[in-house]
């Protein structure tokens, strides 16, 4: 049974046709890397999957729910899908703990004690249990991003969307974040990543989706596709990023 199913999705920004009929099925437990040049529509596709962007045609079904930008629907979806951003987007006026506990308290009506337990649990998972009372500004970029991951995990999503989450980090901090993702993948979390980390896509990912000019240009088993790209566009892309 597929967890995410994208069927013939089209998306326009005004006149610009950014997604030109995307078909994609992702099963529970899969780690899928979406790669491609900037402007190929990969981030837009990801943002359509949890209702941050609307789409004009086609359908996206996630965990049995039709994805739309309707507020009520997005709220329902938040129980099944989490998202981590390139720019972390932690709430700077709240401590790490408060950042994590806010949504479980408000959305899932989790009690105070339980919320705290939950927060410690997810913080331990990302290796930052000692930062519970700190403000985000005191943390390094890599730590902030791990808190953002922990914040998403606290809602116990079935799928985690990662939008270039290591692109804003200093190179020496990337590893810690990727390690967390690797661990999540090992635990069976479904991950959909827009990424430029080809090594990660190959070593940890199950599948690679190469997007080009608003279409899925080439897709398949991660190791195979990256080792033997079939289309000249993907060959060129891999040549450019490696």
């Amino acid at each position: 049974m597929s967890l995410v199913s994208v069927r013939d999705v089209h998306k326009y920004f005004g006149e610009l046709h950014v997604l030109k009929g995307i078909d994609l099925t992702i099963n529970a437990g899969e780690v899928v890397s979406i790669i491609g040049r900037s402007g190929s529509g990969k981030s837009t596709l990801l943002r359509c999957m949890n209702g941050l962007e609307s789409y004009e045609q086609g359908a996206i079904i996630l965990d049995g729910m039709e994805v739309s930008t309707d507020e009520f629907q997005v709220r329902k979806l938040s129980h099944s899908v989490g998202m981590v951003f390139q720019s972390f987007n932690l709430f700077p006026h709240l401590t790490v703990g408060e950042n994590i506990m806010l949504a479980p308290k408000l959305i899932k009506r989790v009690g105070k004690e339980e919320a705290k337990k939950l927060a410690m649990e997810v913080l331990e998972k990302v290796g930052l249990a000692d930062k519970f009372g700190q403000y985000p500004e005191k943390l390094s970029g890599g730590q902030q991003q791990r808190v953002a991951i922990a914040r998403s995990l606290a809602m116990k999503p079935k799928v985690l969307l990662c939008d270039e989450i290591t692109s804003a980090l200093d190179p020496e901090l990337v590893g810690d974040v990727l390690k967390v993702l690797e661990q999540l993948a090992a635990e069976g979390m479904t991950l959909i990543l827009v990424t430029h980390e080809m090594n990660f896509a190959r070593d940890v990912g199950d599948r690679v989706v190469f997007m080009h000019q608003g279409k899925v240009h080439e897709t398949g088993d991660a190791k195979e596709v990256l080792a033997n790209p079939q289309t000249p566009e993907l060959q060129q892309f891999i040549g450019a990023v490696l």
Binding site: N50, G51, L52, E71, V74, R75, L77, S78, H79, V81, G82, M83, F85, S87, F88, N89, L90, F91, L102, A103, L106, I107, A148, R151, S152, M155
Partner: peptide, 14 residues
């Protein structure tokens, strides 16, 4: 930043 709205939305806040 717009990201504050987007993060809230993704977490399910109305």
């Amino acid at each position: 930043p717009k990201g504050q709205w987007e993060a809230s939305r993704c977490l399910g806040l109305n």
